[in-house]
């Protein structure tokens, strides 16, 4: 009795595999653009083997059993890789759920003359596979979340470049919406760049920022104050008329901060602070 299920699966492996793959292929959801049928077959066979190796009447009611560790790991691996490959959650979930249909089919034909046992095992297998499918969903979502958080940090890095525009002057053009987390990164990157380049002037250009709210303005003010504590000056440039309006309507006090309409104006101001003069070359000098 103990090995009945495991023996049955082993005996019917070929049929199980073929039918399951067929079920998967038949479902209009399958994305053959994302995965070859060889790959699908290999994955499916691995899952059936992992189940066959351990399934017994004892652990069938306990999906948490350590017997299923290998199977769980395998399913987790498959769902994470599917998340990365771009499968939808539905497609990923169907992978496991269609195994249930296949198993129940096979069971039905095996136990046609023992309806009581058939009913019992059907209930148990359904529960077990449902449980696996839920964890598959969870892992899939976790896989997606990891991707999102990695992309978020990549975007944050990409979208906050620090440029040394002159000896002693660094500039950071900000593009896109500023939230608190991003403003934090902006602040740190800018201050770090000041130390690394020994620049005494930093220009924060916000012409690419669609809007400014109180929190963001507060962060900008803090950035300027922190820059001063380190012994550098911070100019905020690229203030569009709409932003100027918002700042005044919100009652934000920027009077202690040097603000300029454009990056060019800010640079000019910075040159002035460093007592640098930029002028057109004399025509005579050039020809000489």
């Amino acid at each position: 009795m103990e090995h009945y299920l495991s023996d049955l699966l082993r005996r019917q492996k070929k049929r199980l595999l073929e039918q399951w793959i067929q079920n998967q292929l038949a479902s209009s959801d399958l994305r053959d653009d994302l995965m070859s049928s060889d790959e699908l077959r290999a994955q499916s066979e691995e899952v059936i083997d992992a189940l066959t190796d351990v399934l017994s009447e004892k652990n069938i009611t306990n999906p948490q059993s350590t017997d299923f560790q290998n199977l769980s790991d395998l399913l987790a691996g498959i769902s994470i890789s599917r998340a990365r490959q771009g499968f939808t959650p539905r497609e990923t979930g169907m992978f496991v759920l269609s195994l249930k249909d296949t198993l129940l089919d096979v069971l039905q034909s095996e136990l046609a003359d023992d309806p009581v046992r058939l009913h019992d095992l059907t209930m148990k297998i359904s529960k077990l596979i449902d449980n696996f499918s839920v964890s598959t969903f969870e892992t899939y979502i976790k896989g997606r979340e990891d991707i999102i958080s990695r992309q978020t940090s990549e975007i944050t890095d990409i979208s906050t470049p620090v440029i040394q525009v002159w000896d002693g002057i660094v500039a950071m053009p900000l593009i896109g919406t500023l939230d608190s987390a991003r403003t934090q990164v902006v602040m740190e990157n800018l201050l770090q760049a000041i130390v690394e380049t020994g620049s005494s002037i930093a220009i924060l250009d916000i012409s690419g920022v669609p809007t400014v709210d109180t929190r963001v303005a507060q962060h900008l003010i803090k950035t300027v104050s922190a820059t001063r504590l380190m012994g550098a000056e911070c100019i905020i440039s690229g203030i569009r008329p709409e932003i100027a309006q918002i700042v005044i309507h919100l009652g934000i006090d920027l009077s202690n901060i040097v603000t300029k309409a454009s990056l060019a104006k800010a640079l000019q101001h910075a040159f002035g602070m460093l007592r640098l003069v930029v002028r057109k070359q004399d025509r005579d000098l050039r020809s000489a």
């Binding site: 740190e188 201050l191 770090q192 130390v195 104050s225 922190a226 504590l229 380190m230 012994g231």
Partner: peptide, 13 residues
């Protein structure tokens, strides 16, 4: 006061 680290400046603010 010279050489204040960025993290220290942010914290002080």
């Amino acid at each position: 006061v010279v050489g204040m680290q960025p993290a220290v400046a942010i914290t002080l603010i």
